[in-house]
Every structure is written in structure tokens, then in C-alpha cells.
Design a protein around this nucleic acid. Structure first.
Lengths: 303, 303
DNA sequence: GCCGACCTTTGACTAAAGTCAAAGGTTATG
DNA sequence: CATAACCTTTGACTTTAGTCAAAGGTCGGC
């Protein structure tokens, strides 16, 4: 997980557990209760997840339901005139569920109720307290999400690895004035380690380690899925790559980045990297960086 | 709720709602799943609530269950050898449920699992992030609890009012060197308004308003249940009392406090009160305070 | 010592949630 | 183009969860 895993203190565990209990028993129950109202909770949740439309396959994995059970529930919603089920154009094995106007109306009502619940809670606080709460809640969610993400090495040719690289290439192609092609990626055989970050089975980030020589490793293709940004996942991937490099005996890591990726350059600088002259002729690179690896793979002054 | 209720901004509502959703779906589900494991969730929860022992009556209100349903579930746990049910000594209408050694072992296992869950989450974070998370979580819980508390006027002779005053008197009797007797309380006929704070139907604080004359009201018996301290409920009760006084046409509020209640005195000072000479001969009073009420009942510089 | 208020148990149900396996259509892959 | 892998539907269940009302002790107050 973390370069130097430290023992988790009991006080932190206690606080988090107490919060879990408080929240699931009080607020969670309220939330579900308001969401459901006249409808069995399962159906209400399903309608909510269908949202603007989704395939049954997606719903099944998102909600973790039995295929038969889901099929019947969708059928029930259809009978009530809340959703319409169609065959997926392009893959007739799949079914698509979409809300009808009546379904959309019910969703809007669900939304209104959930808003009311949140608003009712906030109304009991002063404006200052509301700001505090909003901030604390955002921090909590951000860190819990980050904590729930696991990073692990996968084969460079695995589906998740390829999906990440595709997302990476597509994004760079959009952001680089000169564009970016799949052929600009490191060929799989040069990849020593391919790390993928998973949030709930979904690949939401990656990073690649290549050996330049015994002494030096290069980090490439560090990427975080747009929906997982702002959590601090980039830093975590970077740290794990450094840790991995150190574990493989390298003493130094290098990397480069494009001129337009200002955030990336900033992250490397605060992460203990110093700018160095070009060490290769990567046509997309604008800055080259280097960082010495301590024995524990931890930079001085990080975090 | 609050002296000058301000409109709740949509951004706050959105953040809180997003968090509700994230938390109940991700963490809450996990929590329940780990708690239950081989056992129906209802039974697992019940065993948890029984803890070191509880009366069925208590369990029924705490879990909000139907009496018949509860009776059967307890019976089921008894059959599995996890709890023992005995008649309450002193009131044979009540039944007490206590865990057997096997039940205690299962509870310990539940605890271990919940700890593991929390620890597993925290392990993915750096120590700094753990501290941040713990702090954010504590703030969130504190403010959500405070927000969920409702304050409302009740008859001064109601059971809740009397229970609060009993708690108040018992605490002062312990803290005041000279002691405190129930006869030192304001007689009910002098009480103009009796506010009680409720957290989930439970009275967790109170405050009393007496009219000294048309111009001036006196606040007395401001008290917060020990389990509801640290939330900011004292301030909130104070603000509501001031608001009520202003609504009844008073221009000034007064109050006194004992020398040993340093926290109380500090709260009054930061709440806009200034110390004044003794305005009565209350033998327990060490400080006397006064505060002018603006038209909206809001002090300059509060919060 | 009687009455009403309480607490619990039991019987009789209902609805929701979830499981399992067989079967039928569709699509990728070799 | 056959076959394995998928996705969904259907039938046949089981378990949980929850409700309602009747009934039988027990306690507090008059």
C-alpha cells in the first residue's frame, strides 16, 4: 500500500468505527427510508441506479444482485410503467433499462426527498458550522475513497493495463498540441512493472516502471482516471512506483513530462524530484526529472 | 432552530448528499456484511445491542422493533446458546437478556472484524492522512449529531423536563462544594419557558427562561447531558433561549453561574455576555452576567 | 384489592429479499 | 461453423423481516 507502512493506532480505529456505527445506523437508515417511501427498498435503489439508463449487466454488478432477482425486479418496474427495457443495439445479449417519463418523475421525487433530508439536517446548524461540516465531509469522503483504492502489479498486456493506457493516450492526444498516438506508448516488452489502481474492481489509474540500467529506473505513463482525481492517487502511485524501483535495486528514478502538464510537474517537484537535462529524445517531453531513492524509498520532506 | 435561520446553500446540500450515498453504499454495506457474516443481520445487530446485557424493553426502543418480532429473535439467539434471558429482579414484567460465554465470544469476533475493517481502510493511508481522516470524521460526527438534535418548549412539569432538572441537580450537587438540593431549583410556576433538547427522542439538555420583569428575562438551569457534551449544544440552547426571550419582548437577559463552573462562565463571555454586579442573592452564584438582546436576538461577534 | 397501564409471548400472516438451476438466445474464438 | 462463454429469463424454493391482534403476567395508584 504505502512505501513505509506504519502501524495503525487504536485511537484512529476507534474513531472510525464509532463513526461507521453512528452513520450507518442514524443517517443511512434515514436515507434509505426517505428514498423508498412507498416502494420496496430494492426497487427504489434499482430505479435510482438505472438513473438515465443502464444495462442489466451493469446494474447486476453495481448492485451485486442475483441475475434472476434483478430480472424480476426490472420486470416489476416495467409493469409499473417506470422503466422501459430494450435490447442493446450492437449486442443483443444485453438489455438496456431506461426510465419512462413516469420513472423520471419518480426519480425527481426521490431526489427532492434526499435534498430535503440533507437540508433538514443542515438547517439546524449555523452558517459557520455548515461550512465546517461540508469541509469535513468532503475530506472524509476523499480520504475514504483513497484508502479503499488498492494498487497492485498486473501483466502489461492484461485488459486493465491496456484500458488504462488507452485512457492515458486518449487524454494526452487531446491535451498535447502535437497530439499523441498509441505508438508513442512504451512497448510491453520494455515494461518491468505495470501498476494498476483499483477502486471497487474498476481500474482508475496506472503507472509503469522501465529499467534504464541497473542503477536507474524510469517511471512512465502515470495516469489517474478523471473520476478519481483530487484524491491524492497520483502521489500514491508515484510513491508505490518509487518503492517498487527501490525494491528492485535501483538507486535513482527518472521521468519526464510534457510542458502543458503543469500539475504533473508541480507534483514531481513537491515529491522530491529535481529537474535535470534531457536524458532522452522523447518528442513529447518538456521537463526531465530525477530523484534519488533512499533505502526505504521515501523522499525527505514528502507529505 | 437557530436564532436567524439562513437559507441552506445548494452546494452544501449536494456535498452532504453525495457523502450519504457514498458512505451508506460503500462503507455501510461493508460494515453490515462484516458484522453479520454467517448470521442474519437482524440477529447480529440484536446481539450487538445486547452487549453486556440489556432489558428487552430497552432493546425494543433502541432498535425500533416490534415487540413480537424482538421476542422471537431473542428466543432464537437463546436457542443458539448465545444469550440467556432472565426475569428482571425488581420488576418481573421485564426480561433481561445477557450474553452467554459463547455469545461473548461471538461479540468479540464481531468486534475483531469491525476493527479489521477500519484498520484495513486506514492502512492505505499515510500517517498524516490518517490524522486528517480521524479529525474530519470526528468533526462530521459532532456536527451531524448536533444538527440532528431538536430543541422545543415543553411544559415545565413534563416528565422530560423533570428528568433534565434531576440530572442537572444531581450534577451540581456533586460539583458544588456546598452541594445542591432539588429545593434550590426554580419552582415550576415561575418558569416562563422550558426548552428541552432531544436527540432521537431522548432528552439530552435543557434551559429555562424566567421573567424578572417586562424588560428583563433570566436564563436558568442550562444543562447538557454528559453524553451530549462537546457538540456545541450548550451554545445552541443559549441562543434559542435568547431568541425566545427576544420573541417575548424582553430587551435584556441575565444569568448567574457558580464559581466552579469555569466552562460555563467562558461560554457566556464568548457568547456576548458581560459580567455585572449581583442582581440577586442566589447562594450558589459566583458570577452574574447580562446581555442586551438585539431585535433579532443575535449577539455581535457570536460564533 | 381492583383497575388501568405495561411488558412480553404466541399465533397467524404477508411482503421482501435472495438462491439455485435449467434453459434459450447471442457473440467471440479458434 | 462448432463451441465455449455470456447474458437474461423462468420456475421453484427458502429465509428474513416485519405486522397485528389476542392473551396472560405484573406493577403502580387509588
Amino acid at each position: 500500500m504505502e512505501p513505509v507502512p506504519s502501524p495503525v493506532s487504536a485511537a484512529h480505529v476507534t474513531t472510525l468505527r464509532g463513526f461507521n456505527r453512528y452513520f450507518t445506523r442514524r443517517i443511512g437508515v434515514l436515507d434509505d427510508h426517505y428514498l423508498g417511501q412507498d416502494r420496496p427498498l430494492g426497487e427504489a435503489r434499482l430505479l435510482y441506479e438505472i438513473g438515465a439508463g443502464a444495462s442489466l449487466r451493469e446494474l447486476r454488478t453495481r448492485l451485486g444482485l442475483d441475475a434472476g432477482y434483478l430480472s424480476r425486479m426490472v420486470r416489476a418496474l416495467e409493469k409499473q410503467g417506470l422503466v422501459r427495457v430494450t435490447v442493446h443495439p450492437g449486442d443483443s445479449r444485453l438489455r438496456l433499462a431506461e426510465p419512462t417519463p413516469a420513472g423520471r418523475a419518480e426519480l425527481a421525487e426521490q431526489n427532492r426527498r434526499a435534498d430535503d433530508l440533507a437540508e433538514g439536517l443542515l438547517r439546524g446548524l449555523t452558517e459557520t458550522q455548515r461550512r465546517q461540516l461540508t469541509e469535513a465531509v468532503a475530506t472524509t469522503e476523499r480520504l475514504l475513497r483513497l484508502a479503499a483504492i488498492t494498487v497492485r502489479p498486473v501483466p502489461a498486456t492484461s485488459a486493465d493495463a491496456r484500458a488504462c493506457l488507452a485512457g492515458y493516450a486518449a487524454e494526452l492526444d487531446e491535451r498535447f498540441p502535437e497530439g499523441y498516438a498509441a505508438t508513442d506508448l512504451v512497448p510491453p516488452e520494455r515494461i518491468a512493472v505495470f501498476l494498476v489502481a483499483y477502486e471497487e474492481k474498476r481500474a482508475v489509474g496506472c503507472g509503469v516502471l522501465c529499467a534504464l540500467d541497473d542503477e536507474t529506473a524510469e517511471i512512465r505513463h502515470l495516469w489517474v482516471h478523471p473520476e478519481a482525481r483530487g484524491l491524492g492517487l497520483g502521489r500514491r502511485l508515484l510513491a508505490e512506483l518509487e518503492h517498487t524501483a527501490a525494491g528492485r535495486g535501483h538507486r535513482t528514478v527518472r521521468l519526464d513530462t510534457h510542458k502543458v502538464l503543469k500539475e504533473a510537474a508541480a507534483m514531481y517537484r513537491t515529491g522530491g524530484y529535481t529537474q535535470i537535462p534531457a536524458y532522452d529524445d522523447n518528442p513529447h517531453a518538456g521537463y526531465w526529472f530525477e530523484k534519488p531513492l533512499g533505502p526505504a524509498g521515501k523522499a525527505p520532506g514528502t507529505h
